[in-house]
């Protein structure tokens, strides 16, 4: 059973239908990357999970408990980092964590111990200033500390890395990776390299539904192209190969850039042997002959088109 289950979720804002029957299942102890373009509905989905928005239909279950809109009971299992975390500017980081601890009902000593641990983890241990003077990255890190305070079973982060510089991004990703052992992480992003760096599961949200879903390896396997990249000694040889009449077949698409030719096979029983035969016939020896690996980016572009 997943720690988070989403069933047939629908949500529209006026005429604009953002979620059209979203189905999702987040298993325990995974780092789950929710990928989607801006406006795909990632934030909307998260707000529904947290009971901050009312879905038009469908249900969300967290740790086996149903989420009810306007109520906050299921949120005790969840730590949430909003896309733009906002705090009370007049408090210090410690004061804020103390408030959070009191609200969750953590004991004072426990709050103190956890606060110190977490401030250490996110690198704000020696920060005595008020939150009002914090930079964007510092707020983001305090946001993570806050989210992890009550040792949640599920950590939800909304685009935690989007507005940060590369170093800040790496720091946040490292923190998420460190949290993996103790909690399940669901985070949204539109930066694919982040997903590749830390996620073990991925879902692409597009058109109000999941367009792609599974572990990274599974997804890549399922969407393996029947295609090859060939590199030749020079541009002329490449052109001869690309223009050869054997390749003018409806199920083969050929693209050449410089001395590299990419051939894609769609819906036919041709395979690598066919190209090897063509090469043998023309007595061309390529420098490279490699099967095409789908990158996350190509997959993403494919499903969102």
């Amino acid at each position: 059973m997943g720690i988070l289950e989403i069933n047939q979720l629908h949500k529209r804002f006026g005429q604009h239908e953002v979620l059209k029957g979203l189905e999702m299942d987040v298993p325990e102890h995974s780092i789950f990357g929710l990928v989607g373009q801006n406006g795909a509905g990632k934030t909307t989905t998260m707000k529904i999970i947290l009971g901050l928005l009312k879905p038009d239909s469908g249900s969300v279950t967290v740790c086996g408990e149903k989420v009810a809109y306007g109520e906050t009971k299921t949120n005790r299992h969840i730590g949430f980092l909003p896309d733009v975390p906002e705090f009370y500017g007049y408090m210090t980081a410690r004061e804020y964590l103390k408030l959070c601890g009191e609200i969750t009902g953590l004991s004072q000593t426990k709050t103190k111990v956890r606060s110190e641990e977490l401030l250490e983890l996110v690198g704000l241990k020696n920060e005595k200033k008020r939150i009002g003077s914090f930079s964007r990255g510092m707020k983001q890190r305090l946001g993570i500390a806050q989210a992890l305070l009550n040792e949640p079973k599920l950590l939800i982060c909304d685009e935690p890395t989007s507005s940060l510089d590369p170093i800040g991004r790496k720091e946040i990703l490292d923190i998420l990776l460190a949290a993996k052992g103790k909690t399940t992480v669901l985070f949204s992003t539109h930066i694919l390299s982040d997903v590749e760096r830390i996620c073990d599961r991925i879902a692409v949200l597009h058109g109000g539904k999941l367009a792609l879903y599974g572990t990274l390896a599974e997804v890549k396997q399922r969407h393996r192209y029947n295609g090859f990249v060939l590199e030749f000694e020079n541009v002329e040889t490449a052109a001869i190969f690309a223009k050869s009449k054997e390749l003018q077949h409806p199920s083969i698409s050929t693209t050449r850039s410089g001395n590299t030719v990419t051939v894609l096979l769609t819906g036919c029983d041709l395979d690598g042997h066919f190209f090897l035969d063509v090469l043998a016939q023309k007595r061309i020896v390529p420098l490279k002959f490699v099967a095409l690996e789908p990158t996350l980016e190509s997959l993403f572009l494919e499903v969102v088109q």
Binding site: G70, T72, N75, R76, P85, E86, C100, I103, T104, Q146
Partner: peptide, 13 residues
């Protein structure tokens, strides 16, 4: 939006 985090910590409205 300062309430959002506290609400997600289980503070009731």
């Amino acid at each position: 939006g300062t309430l959002v985090i506290l609400l997600t910590k289980g503070l009731s409205r």
